[in-house]
């Protein structure tokens, strides 16, 4: 997928340094225990522009998370190149914040300490880091929960702390791996709105991975669809021109939303079925 301004018409061509994340012909192979190799993704090219919210949707096991890990610098691609703001990425991507799918808070730190740690690592004095962490906890609606340890918080509250932990560092790029996956439907909606609210105040480039197409359309500027694994590719790209600010619940009633959902689902359906066959799920 080459970044062109086809669908929207209103978007202008962008200069190279406006591109926050660029994956160029990225292929990732894993060596398995039995020496065989497994090709997770093959020749994926994608860009995320500065201030743009891009979702990657695909069936289970299609290597969406792998792409995020490559953009984060946690994995090196087997072939292809990763560029962050026009510069090749070697090592960890220091300009990105990563919200993981699994529990990633430090269980031995309180919510406040968990949020503050992201500043302490760059040398902000502890007292100052804590004060700003308290600010962030308030912004994610947990102002009174700073002294709690992660196990004393609900799943949704832990995700809020995780969001604050990442955002307090003010990363230019936000990588999100099904961050609201394990939450119930209502909490997901609330978290989605919280995310959009925080994002609209300070627009970062967001690479958002999900298997939930509705969530992807409701949140994003652009939706990329991946094929079923192994050797997944990007097989489609849709621009979401729904007006912002959006409310997750309301935007789902918009006729444009339905039209997009129908179109994308047509493309995704076959891949989802294929994905189930591959992974033996059902």
């Amino acid at each position: 997928m080459v970044e062109t301004s086809v669908a929207g018409g209103g978007t202008q061509a962008r200069a190279a340094n406006d591109v926050a994340v660029r994956l160029k012909d990225v292929t990732i192979e894993f060596r398995m225990a039995d020496r065989a190799s497994y090709k997770a993704v093959e020749r994926v090219t994608l860009t995320v522009n500065e201030g743009e919210f891009v979702s990657i949707v695909g069936p289970t096991g299609c290597g969406k998370t792998t792409l995020l890990n490559v953009a984060a610098g946690l994995y090196q691609p087997s072939a292809g190149a990763v560029e962050i703001f026009g510069t090749g990425l070697g090592g960890l991507n220091g300009q990105s914040g990563y919200l993981f799918q699994a529990e990633a808070l430090f269980p031995w730190k309180t919510a406040l300490e968990n949020v503050a740690i992201g500043l302490e690592t760059v040398g902000v004095p502890v007292a100052q880091a804590r004060a700003r962490a308290q600010d962030w906890l308030t912004r994610v609606g947990l102002g009174k929960f700073g002294a709690r340890y992660p196990h004393m918080l609900s799943g949704g509250q832990r995700k809020r702390v995780g969001l604050a932990q990442v955002l307090i560092r003010d990363p230019k790029i936000l990588l999100m791996d099904e961050p609201f996956g394990p939450l119930d439907a209502q909490t997901r909606q609330i978290m989605g709105n919280l995310l959009l609210d925080l994002w609209s105040q300070n627009r970062k480039a967001v690479m958002f991975v999900t298997h939930d197409l509705e969530e992807a359309i409701a949140l994003s500027d652009r939706v990329l669809i991946m094929s079923a694994g192994p050797a997944s590719r990007i097989i489609g790209e849709w621009r979401v021109t729904l007006p912002r600010p959006r409310d997750i619940a309301e935007v789902k009633l918009d006729p444009l939303f339905h039209q997009l959902h129908r179109e994308i689902w047509q493309a995704l359906k076959d891949e989802v079925l294929e994905g189930y066959k591959q992974t033996g799920g059902g």
């Binding site: 914040g97 990563y98 529990e103 430090f106 992201g118 560092r169």
Partner: peptide, 15 residues
């Protein structure tokens, strides 16, 4: 140590 927590720590810039 959970690999996710370790990855998170590294992404948060820990030396």
């Amino acid at each position: 140590v959970s690999p996710t927590i370790l990855a998170n720590a590294r992404m948060l810039g820990m030396s």
